[in-house]
Nucleic acid binder design. Structure first.
Lengths: 114, 114
DNA sequence: AAAATAATTAGGTATTGACCTAACTATTGG
DNA sequence: CCAATAGTTAGGTCAATACCTAATTATTTT
């Protein structure tokens, strides 16, 4: 009943880190090179590259290298998948609340009727 | 410029695990006790409790104990926060694409004009 | 060709995460 | 009261994560 694809794991995991979310925020504004992306962070380059790798594995970032420069771009699909999952849960939740509302309303009507 | 609240960390982290997402999916349909929630998983109770704890720390689940039974309920706020963050990134992304579209269009017009 | 730049690889440490078993503490039903 | 039930605590293992430094490769710039 519940779609539980491993891709969601990787996407959520990638987004669970503030550095990686900041990278996504940067790339949402447009492509950037590794060095540009890394600049704001007080972190050694290899550490940053590891974060990038997690983002790539999660499918959130695609990269390509030209000369000695690697350029990164955001891939929106995993964000959409995550959003879809969230929406599904919120739909269930609100649906249930609506049912509760209806129940309470009918109880109230019964009350008034006597 | 980028809101980077720690709460998002905890929420994303909580959702990065399939067991925990399944718990959220279950609770979206309505409250349940710890044992009920744990039943589907092939996992020792203490392990499951640890997952629950992560969900509580992420603010996704609230629990209360009556007698020997602990009942769990979903808290939708963190889901909303996560959804909001996602929407913000997707908005930036599509906005940028739109700008690109306009740019390409104007280039095309220039072309036609000569 | 030498020096600077961009990224990568190798390898190490310390913390956290995901599981387990075993033993324990309520609470509740018979 | 006693046994079953629901959950908890303590403590241990093993793998993964998040960082680091140092050394290396490949490409540009001067």
């Amino acid at each position: 009943m519940s779609l539980n694809p491993a891709p969601l794991d990787d996407a959520f995991r990638a987004l669970a880190d503030p550095t990686r979310r900041a990278v996504v925020e940067a790339l949402a504004r447009g492509p950037a090179t590794v060095s540009e992306l890394a600049r704001p962070f007080d972190m050694a380059m290899p550490s940053f590259l590891q974060h990038l790798k997690v983002l790539e594995e999660g499918g959130l970032v695609a990269t390509s290298k030209k000369g000695r420069v690697r350029t990164c771009a955001l891939r929106p699909e995993p964000l959409a998948a995550v959003g879809g999952w969230l929406d599904a849960q919120r739909a269930l939740w609100t649906q249930r609340l609506d049912q509760l509302d209806r129940l309470l309303l009918s109880l109230k009507n019964d009350e008034e009727r006597r």
